[in-house]
Design a protein around this nucleic acid. Structure first.
Lengths: 172, 172, 172, 172
DNA sequence: ACGCCCGGGACGTCCCGTTGTT
DNA sequence: AACAACGGGACGTCCCGGGCGT
């Protein structure tokens, strides 16, 4: 939920669940391991939610629009505090910590695969690049939305995704 | 270049060769003010570069593609260390620090205006939303590229931007 | 081998392959008891080696010279890591922990008795003080040798011990 | 006064003089630098005291006996808490920390030079080794005295030093 | 006898902001 | 304007001891 270096306030929150002494029993790798596993966990949770949403909606454009809408609701209910749990960590560790960076990259890769598979099932022939663009646009929109405290970027992206998808299908 | 919490003041001062005592003369607001002004400065610098690129290329799709290519080159020359200087700060201060968050939002707004104005000059009638999507997609692509140490997301976005723009123009 | 405070229990347990839960079964006194028994054990081991060396060489000066030479070889084979196993513990617990300090004192007393008995058998009439000086000089030489990574102090002491012994015998 | 790893209790004592925050201004090298400078300081202080004692007593044996007696008094007045300030640090850093170990070695070297110079002035021709033996014996006696809470080792060494010195002078 | 997990506390490090002196 | 020194507080790490279930 928060950045890597900004967290330690959360260490105090860790006192609220696990005592500080036990931390290095469960995570001998220290903060780095904790970050890696948190990223993976959050990535899997969001991946599961995404899979559910996609599975219930065959049309890719509509499915993505629903996913985007859910993200928007989450932003509102958390008062713009929680956007993408991976992005924050990814950005302030990308330069210093390869283990955490790789974990973030893996999570993004898994999301991209989910989207690509769904698009392929809907008839898109080479969905890899397109899925990457979709993830990029959504991540960017979450970033802007959180920064501006305004859902507009998310809505704007949600509607334009349809254009990209239809272009790809017709050209196939 | 780095996140807010990941950057120590002593580091900033040592890198800049400035004496520590004078910092609180020039920046009475301390670290927060320094971050705000750094974000604004970096935003203006990149805005100027973007304006130059756009001005030299009338066609919006081609102009944006050039801008994206330049970002990719910058990623490579800095070994993926420097992506968007605003995003990192924006994400790990969005929840805690309204002053810095607002500065980041202003910078994003200024970039969005630049792109929107250029598109309007090229005949797009309502470019605001589209410009937001463009910024989102590029920011997201930078995030993914830095995380994966791979320019693919940037290239993928670069090519799809044309689709969005042509759709908008034809529908006008 | 190491000092009291420099040695972590987890390290001891990990090196010994022992499970942590059983430590407080075997050593209800915790770290203190463990230190006491370690000192006693190491003292007995070295005492046995010393006894062997002394028993095989009737002349006290020659016997001590051999013992000193063996200590020097041990320093070299351990790259100056292991000197006297008691001294390190003795020094950094002397002020805080009477149980450990007493254990160290007992070990030194036993060594002193060994040397004194051997000297008495060789005709020295009041060997107690002399044996104490011998132990002191050797312990000090080990300290200097380890600190300077140089066997010179040990050699210097080894050769002068003969002077002390001969003086004592002639005066008897 | 205490060992390297046992000290942190002294960190609390450092709060009693310097505030914790300033420590890394004065000692950017952290604990290691602090230890090095403490050892050097203590070594210089004791060196000065030793020089004074030696200067006031031309006869080497008598001079050393006086120095040993002073050490004994110091042990008593501190209730055997302060022996040689260098030995404790030397022993529990010798294996891990070359900077501190070297500082200790330097101090021992300076003491050995003081003694050797004094002996040379008194007619001893090759005093280097003998001075090393003297330092060794005194350090060892301090170790034993502190461990046993008994001045006997110190007294025993004090009286035998004369034997070593006279042997050397007559042989010259 | 062992092993998992807890718990509080300390250590060494470094942070950011503020003084007082030139 | 620049600088040295202070000051409290937090971080991440690791410690030693002791429960709980077998």
């Amino acid at each position: 939920v928060q950045g890597y270096h900004a967290t330690g306030l959360n260490q105090v929150l860790a006192d609220g669940g696990l005592p500080k002494g036990s931390l290095y029993f469960h995570f001998p790798g220290g903060k780095e391991q904790l970050a890696v596993e948190s990223v993976r966990l959050a990535g899997d949770e969001f991946g599961a939610a995404l899979r559910t949403t996609l599975a219930s909606t065959p049309d890719p454009a509509e499915a993505l629009e629903r996913a985007v809408a859910q993200l928007g609701e989450h932003l509102i209910t958390t008062d713009y505090r929680e956007g993408c749990p991976v992005a924050t960590v990814a950005l302030d560790t990308a330069a210093h910590n390869d283990a955490v960076r790789t974990a973030c990259a893996d999570v993004y890769g898994s999301w991209q695969s989910l989207v690509a598979d769904h698009m392929r099932a809907a008839g898109v022939e080479e969905p890899a690049d397109l899925a990457t663009v979709v993830i990029s646009a959504i991540e960017g929109a979450l970033l802007l939305a959180r920064t501006c405290r305004d859902l507009a970027p998310l809505h704007a992206v949600g509607t334009r995704l349809r254009v990209l998808l239809e272009n790809e299908r017709s050209s196939a």
